[in-house]
């Protein structure tokens, strides 16, 4: 029986989760929300996390009705992510580990997402589409590693959505992606955008530049026009959000399907913050039905970064006998999914 507490703080969410033998006992989270038109910066995000984290630790223990002595292991996100926010989680985890005399485990953020998705949905050996603000990867398990078959060759899909939301000044509450999704539901004219697929890889930066120009024609570098000439955008925000979603999600579904054909797999699991977009889930479900496959997806509690996924992946590692010396309890901004030895899976 393993009871694990997990701390996640690699981006703008700080979350604590407690899990005991697969049973969810607590999952609390706070999000650092910036004003419309602004993104989150490392220093300010870390400050937000520092202010919230201790309250969350207490809240999680209370929700789980546990004492520190009931825990078996403290887990934290080791990377990848922004260093200052990551450090907040790591320092608190180290302190709790020494204070409560519990072993400490660093967990790869991406592996946390995958394991949580598998646990909640019951998917056995799926092709994983991991889509978030910092990552876009198509992953399949083979021989003790989560191998990356396809990924973005420039920016992540969530980054593309977030930056577009900033250009059209959408609110960051609860998240820019959620607000794009709501606007897109009102759009009905499809605006043609670049469609960039390279084998199992995708590229989003060209699409972003293109749609930014459509949303705000004054950005266009045209020397003959003076900056004060206000140009009205040709398309409504609703139509642009709709077209952006339709285009980039079609690309994601296409590379997932290509990976399914390449690996001979029939299951798809979507994880990561963008994964709770219902339009993406719908498109993926249609694709799966067309080839007799099955889709597994989760809602915002488990899709968006959370402490529970770190607790769960850490508990799996702990159960399989993985231990980490205290000296190795650092954080790293670069930590690829395929660097982790998946000791807990034997298939």
């Amino acid at each position: 029986m393993v009871c694990a507490l997990g701390i996640e703080g690699s981006a703008n969410k700080i979350g604590i989760g407690i899990i005991r033998d697969g049973e969810v006992l607590a999952n609390v989270r706070r999000t650092y929300i910036t004003p419309p038109g602004e993104g989150f910066l490392p220093k300010e995000t870390a400050k937000h996390h520092r202010e919230e984290i201790l309250g969350l630790v207490q809240a999680s223990l209370k929700e789980a009705q546990l004492k520190p002595a009931d825990l078996d292991v403290i887990c934290y996100t080791k990377g990848p992510g922004m260093a200052p926010p990551l450090l907040v989680g790591a320092i608190v985890a180290r302190t709790l580990s020494l204070l409560w005399e519990k072993p400490l485990l660093g967990v790869n953020h991406c592996v946390g997402h995958i394991e949580m998705g598998r646990h909640i949905t019951g998917a056995q050996n799926p092709i994983v589409l991991y889509v978030s603000g910092g990552n876009t990867q198509v992953i399949a398990y083979s021989n003790q590693r989560y191998r990356i078959f396809g990924e973005t060759i420039d920016i992540a899909v969530g980054n593309c959505l977030d930056r577009f939301a900033r250009i059209i000044k959408l609110s960051n509450d609860p998240s820019p992606g959620y607000n794009i999704e709501q606007l897109a539901k009102k759009g009905n004219t499809y605006v043609k955008l670049p469609y960039v697929v390279k084998g199992m890889d995708v590229s989003f930066s060209g699409i972003l530049s293109h749609i930014e120009d459509l949303a705000d024609p004054s950005r266009r570098r045209n020397k003959r026009k003076k900056p004060q000439d206000e140009v009205d955008p040709e398309y409504s925000k609703e139509d642009l959000c709709y077209s952006l979603q339709e285009t980039i999600f079609a690309m994601l579904v296409e590379i997932t399907e290509r990976a399914m054909a390449h690996c001979g797999s029939n299951e798809v699991l979507i994880v990561g913050g963008v994964g709770c977009n219902e339009r993406l889930q719908e498109m993926m479900r249609i694709m799966c039905e067309e080839r007799g496959g099955k889709l597994f997806a989760t809602d915002e509690r488990y899709c968006i970064d959370n402490g529970l996924m770190i607790a769960h992946a850490g508990a799996e590692m702990f159960r399989a006998g993985t231990r980490m010396p205290f000296e190795e309890s650092f954080v790293t901004q670069r930590y690829r999914t395929d660097e982790v030895l998946v000791s807990w899976r034997t298939d």
Binding site: S142, N143, R147, F149, K198, G199, M200, H262
Partner: peptide
Amino acid sequence: GVDLYVLERALLSTHSE
């Protein structure tokens, strides 16, 4: 260059041994 990169990534993931 991108064509070669796609090939390299496909080989590393499919034939990692």
